[in-house]
């Protein structure tokens, strides 16, 4: 299995690991049975993601994609974060092995899941804005 230097870098020195105590949105995706769980915490101020942190149970690619996804959305508007695709995460990591592409989908969905939670907390139905959250197939 060939991981790019960037994947290995984000795996061995993951950015934004941890929790945000007073997070405005928390999302979790995946299950332990299939081997990957990502939990994402967002701090949102005036529609801007001011901080993002994650916790991940999973393989090297799962950790690296979580790390990269948080990097890509930090400082961005919610609208921009909603436009984050798994392809963008893969590209930013200089590629992923084919069997690991699902990890990048998890990272994308973890961001959306946290944003969905943010809207729910605001009393706003997240579905029309964020769309359905795709859970990985078992």
């Amino acid at each position: 299995m060939m991981y790019s230097e960037k994947v290995l870098d984000h795996f061995s020195n993951p950015r934004n690991v941890g929790e945000i105590e007073d997070a405005d949105g928390v999302g979790e995706i995946g299950n332990a049975k299939c081997g990957d769980i990502m939990k994402m915490y967002l701090k949102i101020d005036n529609g801007i993601i001011t901080d993002a942190k994650f916790k991940t149970f999973g393989c090297g690619a799962a950790v690296a994609t979580s790390s990269m996804a948080t990097e890509l959305i930090k400082g961005k508007s919610i609208d921009d974060a909603l436009k984050l695709t798994n392809d963008a995460v893969v590209e930013a990591l200089d590629g992923l092995p084919a069997v690991k592409i699902h990890c990048s989908v998890l990272a994308e969905q973890a961001v959306r899941s946290a944003l969905s939670d943010y809207y729910t907390r605001q009393g706003i139905d997240p579905l029309p804005i964020v769309g359905e959250i795709k859970e990985p197939e078992e």
Partner: peptide, 17 residues
């Protein structure tokens, strides 16, 4: 384990799915 949500759940006595 520090970065694992599964470990966090285990330590909080929550069910791991």
């Amino acid at each position: 384990r520090e970065m694992s949500p599964v470990w966090e759940k285990m330590m909080n006595g929550e069910e791991v799915k």
